[in-house]
Amino acid sequence: METLLEIKNLSKSFDLHNLGKHIRAVSSVDIQIKEGEFVGITGKSGSGKSTILKCIYGTYRIQQGSILYHSKKFGRINLAEATERELLYLRKHEIGYVSQFLNVMPRTTARQLVKQAILEMGDDHDLAEKETEKILAHFELDEELWDSYPTTFSGGEKLRLNIARAMVKKPRLLLLDEPTASLDHDSKIKVKLLIEQLMKEGTTMLGIFHDLEFMNHLCNQEYNIQNGVFSHSTSFTNS
């Protein structure tokens, strides 16, 4: 299998000018992910797990290191040096990101939200409509909610919508930032089923989960951050 993502010696720190502080978030991170793998990152809260995902997604700009990604459109590309427009393209077409927070446009219904995500990749409205209904149904989001605003949803409903929106695009690389953190058992199983299905379809995933049991069932490799030290802890053979 080809390497899809290779992070070398990544460091990220924050200079808070107004507080006169310099905060080191992570340093010397090395990760290698092959196509189709599911890789997990573990570590205490505040250890910098999310920072790594945000660096890959381009939300954080890094000081040191490289993030080599094998893009369908651009070939090998260092995400740390990609232009803004290249990052925007990749976000629309290749790299997905799910966090525990729903960050949505106000006054947009659940249906519109998912549909727009699909339409970023093409403009077949009928197909988008069909795919939208399919995934909303899969996550058992009450049909009454489809045409209402997510701000009125419960935490679990928001989260399911959030995951649905990212997964419906079947990205090449999906970054999961504790997407199951506040889900009940049934919903977690739904997420797991979808993750497994996406893996079958070839999506590579890098995820942070608090639920180690959940993660261990899916993972090919695991990385661990402890006291600021980043290490490759386990490689599971693909079962």
Partner: peptide, 16 residues
């Protein structure tokens, strides 16, 4: 930068 970069990881003193 990308809008989320500006909002989540502002670099310049004034932007922060």
């Amino acid at each position: 930068g990308l809008t989320d970069q500006i909002l989540e990881d502002p670099q310049h003193r004034y932007t922060q």
